[in-house]
Amino acid sequence: MQAATNASSPEDIKALEQTRLRLQAVVKSLGQLQHDLAHHETLPSWPSLQKSSALLIRTISSLLSTTETHSKFLHSAHAYPLPTFPGRSQAGLLDFLLRKKHEPSVEDWIIEGLKAAAEFCDASEIEGMGVRVGERKEKRGLDEEDITELWEWAGPAENDIARRVLTAGEHTSDEEDDEDEEDDDEDADQNATKDTQMTGADVPGKQPAVPEPPPLPLATILRFMTTGSVPLFADPQRQNREQMAAIRAMSAQREGEAAAVRAGIATQGQ
């Protein structure tokens, strides 16, 4: 390419080459991510999304560190097209190379990013681009230091918790041993009570005095939720049972009457 001055040293060319490689990597991982998101019918799983975003962040940060180390040269470098450059056929590329300012859309992105950063970031040195970085909104609770502090605390704390959870089965010290045993005892007690509750066995003193009424059938609840009223015949089985009970009661009554009549006849007969 026609970039750089004629007196470019091999180091400068190396810097350009490195930057190009890094940029290529960023473009590649961005393209990959875009492809994954757009062309698969189902979203990729969370772990794979996270992996590709982590990869992207790593390539971007390596790009940043490369441009940082060569920032002096890259700032002073300018593109001078040679007469042999095919200006007619590659006009777009030429424009792009010679343009000193950002494209308007790119500028918008930068402002957007700065605005997002301004909400929790105090650094006033990235002022410019029309965004007042120093003035952050009072509503936002956390600023840069708070977030740093939080994560400095949260990382180790989370590790502690995770270690305790992961090694719960192993006995590391005597104190924990005792605690575990107590826990076990409690668990056992709880399990016992739960078991009895689940099997419905009567434990004097533990059960409520009034037995629980039978649960309403799910059907009734769903019907109520959709139509807002209790269906007239909630449970055909129960209806049947009640009917049978009524019939039985009626026949028992009749039998009683018949018995009384018979008894009456018997007494008359005597």
Binding site: E41, T42, E212, P213, P214, L216, L218, I221, F224, V230
Partner: peptide
Amino acid sequence: LDPSGGYVLQASILVQDLGKPA
């Protein structure tokens, strides 16, 4: 509503579009 005070467990998944069988 349920005199026994029982609870209902509802598990649901929202699907935007049934056009995609996958």
